[in-house]
C-alpha cells in the first residue's frame, strides 16, 4: 500500500545493471565455462561427451554420487524440517525465542570450516563427548563410542549440514511469520486444527515463497560445498565436491575438464531437485489466500 504503482523509469532500471553484471555475469560465465570445458575433449578442440563418459565410467563415481546426494538430501531435509517446526513454535509460543534467535544468528556467522572443526573436537571417538561418557562409565572408552564423524555413513556431514543450514532456513523464513501469519495460526487453533494441520495448511503455505528457495540453496550447498566433506568425510566414498576440487587443482590440466564435468553433474542434480521440489509443493502455492509481497526475498 505504501509502495506506489507508478511505472519504473529507464533511469531506475539502470540501477539494476551493475548488480546484474557482477552477479549474473560472473555466475552465468561460470556456468558456460563449466559446460564448455566439460564437453571439449581432453587435449583437442573436438566437442563431445567424451569427458562425461570417462568420468561417469570411473570406478566409484556412482558411489560418490549417491553418497553426495544422500548426505545433501538428509542434511537439507533435517534442516528444513527443524526450521519449520521451530519457526511454527516461535509463532505460537514465543518464549525463549530471543535468546535462541541470537544463538542461531551466531551459528549462521560461524564459517563452515570452523563449525566442522568444532564438530570433530566434540564428536570424534577421542573427542570431548566421548571423554565425558567414558568418565561417567557409559561406554568402554574410545572403542565403545559410536563413530559420528569421518564415518562411512556420512553422519558427521549430515549433522554438520543440518545444524548449519537450519539457522539459515529458519532465519530466512522469519520475515514471513509476521502478524498476518500468526493471526491465521491463532484462527486455525480456535477452529480446532492440531499442530500438524496448522503447519500443513497455514504455516507452510505462508512461508513457501522463501522456504522453497532457501531449501534449494541449502541443498545446493550440501551437494557442492567442499568444507563438510573434506573435514568430516571418509576416504570411501568421498563427496563429489571434494573430488572435483582436487581434480581442478591438479597440475595435470586435463583433470580440469573432468572437474568441470563433475561440476555440471552437480548443477544438473540441483536443477532436477528444484523442479521436483517445486512440483511437489505446487499445492501450497495455490492454497495461499493472501499473496505476500516481496518482503521476504532475503532467502
Amino acid at each position: 500500500m505504501k509502495r506506489d504503482r507508478r511505472r519504473t523509469s529507464g533511469r531506475e532500471l539502470l540501477g539494476l545493471v551493475p548488480v546484474l553484471l557482477v552477479v549474473g555475469g560472473l555466475s552465468i560465465a561460470a556456468l558456460v565455462d563449466a559446460l564448455a570445458s566439460s564437453i571439449s575433449a581432453e587435449g583437442s578442440d573436438a566437442v563431445g561427451l567424451a569427458v562425461f563418459r570417462t568420468v561417469l565410467g570411473l570406478p566409484g563415481f556412482w558411489a560418490s554420487f549417491w553418497f553426495s546426494l544422500y548426505v545433501a538430501l538428509s542434511g537439507t531435509l533435517l534442516a528444513t524440517a527443524g526450521a519449520v517446526v521451530l519457526g511454527h513454535r516461535w509463532c505460537t509460543r514465543p518464549r525463549g525465542r530471543r535468546t535462541a534467535q541470537t544463538l542461531l544468528h551466531f551459528n549462521l556467522g560461524v564459517p563452515h570450516l570452523v563449525w566442522a572443526v568444532a564438530l570433530v573436537a566434540l564428536l570424534s571417538p577421542s573427542g570431548w563427548l566421548s571423554r565425558v561418557t567414558s568418565l561417567l562409565g557409559l561406554d568402554s572408552g574410545i572403542d565403545g563410542f559410536p563413530v559420528l564423524v569421518n564415518d562411512p555413513y556420512g553422519i558427521g556431514i549430515v549433522l554438520h549440514l543440518a545444524s548449519k543450514e537450519l539457522p539459515f532456513v529458519l532465519l530466512a523464513t522469519l520475515p514471513l511469520t509476521g502478524v498476518a501469519t500468526r493471526r491465521s495460526l491463532a484462527q486455525g487453533a480456535t477452529l480446532g486444527a492440531g499442530t500438524a494441520s496448522q503447519i500443513r495448511h497455514i504455516y507452510l503455505p505462508a512461508i513457501a515463497p522463501v522456504l522453497i528457495p532457501a531449501t534449494i540453496a541449502s541443498f545446493a550447498f550440501g551437494l557442492g560445498g567442499y568444507e563438510p566433506g573434506a573435514a568430516l568425510g571418509v576416504q570411501r566414498p568421498r563427496t563429489l565436491a571434494v573430488v572435483a576440487l582436487e581434480w581442478f587443482r591438479s597440475p595435470d590440466l586435463t583433470m580440469r575438464h573432468r572437474a568441470f564435468a563433475v561440476a555440471v553433474v552437480l548443477m544438473a542434480t540441483v536443477a532436477l531437485a528444484s523442479v521436483v521440489l517445486l512440483a511437489m509443493t505446487r499445492s501450497w502455492w495455490t492454497m495461499r489466500a493472501t499473496p505476500h509481497r516481496r518482503e521476504g526475498v532475503r532467502a
Binding site: 560465465a29 563449466a34 557442492g224 565436491a241 581442478f248
Partner: peptide, 22 residues
C-alpha cells in the same frame, strides 16, 4: 531476483571453479 540468487543455487565448488577461470 532469479538471476541474483543463481549463485546460491549453484554448487559452491563448481561456481568457484568457473569464476576462477573467468
Amino acid at each position: 531476483v532469479g538471476v541474483l540468487f543463481l549463485p546460491s543455487l549453484l554448487p559452491a565448488v563448481g561456481l568457484a571453479m568457473g569464476v576462477d577461470v573467468m
